[in-house]
């Protein structure tokens, strides 16, 4: 069964792509839509893809940084640290990302205008929105990392102490290497979620895939009403490709650091 599901991932990617291309070309020949249009906008969407990739490369590291801090903070002895960390996780996981993005951005704009007398705080509010998404992802990553830390058997921590390692050395040499390996699959899943959430950044006019698709769709409405769906479908394909690549990347990292005997609990 395992062999099937590994090969099937690739098989499906290829199959879907082929099927889509076949159907698309066939429909185009049949005159259902304007095939040249579809290929024409693909180039424009590619720019959006780059924009999305850039945003993703900001969101995921921010999420990881905070996820690491907060996830570790949830496991410390300090009651204060744990409460703050828990508060962070509950807030950023409990709020819809769209709400976080739009309102942190708007609020930042209002505050900048009101108190710092910034005329047009577009860039700053964009950054705030991206950070908000980063914090949102961080909330999920914190939980994943916390679970990874807690999965390290207590006996090994005991053994490390018994050898004379300090708590800090134990954290670095014993806990983190194992927590990291165990967390990777779940982190990969969360990364693909973060990629999909960047679509929401179009709400604050970030230059990315959905924003462009939206523009193209609205233009298409004026040209030929039937074609409005095409930009969105192409955008969907591009998102799929991006998440696919990122998850592959994480799997590759998993394979590189894999140690026999340290399999992640199977989902």
């Amino acid at each position: 069964m395992r062999l099937w599901s590994h090969a099937s991932r690739w098989a499906f990617a290829v199959m879907i792509a082929c099927a889509a291309i076949t159907v698309a070309t066939a429909l185009g020949q049949a005159g259902v839509y304007d095939g040249r249009y579809a290929w024409g906008i693909a180039a424009e969407l590619a720019e959006g893809f780059i924009g999305t990739a850039a945003l993703v490369s900001a969101v995921i590291p921010v999420g990881f940084a905070f996820g690491f801090l907060v996830g570790w903070g949830r496991t410390t002895r300090s009651w204060f640290a744990r409460s703050v960390a828990t508060g962070y996780v509950e807030f950023f996981r409990g709020m819809p990302p769209l709400v976080l993005i739009v309102f942190s951005s708007l609020s930042a704009a209002v505050l900048l205008r009101r108190y710092l007398y910034v005329e047009d705080p577009f860039l700053a509010s964009l950054v705030v929105g991206v950070l908000a998404l980063g914090f949102h992802s961080g909330g999920y990553q914190a939980e994943i990392i916390r679970a990874g830390i807690q999965s390290v058997p207590r006996g090994q921590i005991e053994a490390a102490y018994a050898m004379g390692l300090t708590p800090r050395q134990t954290l670095l040499s014993v806990v983190m290497p194992q927590a990291f390996r165990v967390s990777l699959p779940a982190l990969g899943n969360e990364f693909s979620s973060a990629i999909k959430d960047t679509a929401l950044l179009s709400a604050i006019s970030a230059f990315e895939l959905s924003q462009l698709a939206g523009f193209l769709a609205r233009d298409a409405l004026t040209i030929n009403v039937r074609m409005v769906v095409i930009p969105w479908i192409e955008a969907a394909i591009l998102y799929f490709a991006l998440t696919f690549l990122v998850v592959r990347g994480v799997k590759a990292v998993e394979n590189r650091v894999k140690v026999p005997g340290l399999e992640a609990p199977s989902l």
Partner: peptide
């Protein structure tokens, strides 16, 4: 030396 060995698996 522990009952459950407690070797570091990684």
């Amino acid at each position: 030396v522990f009952q459950s060995f407690n070797l570091l698996t990684h």
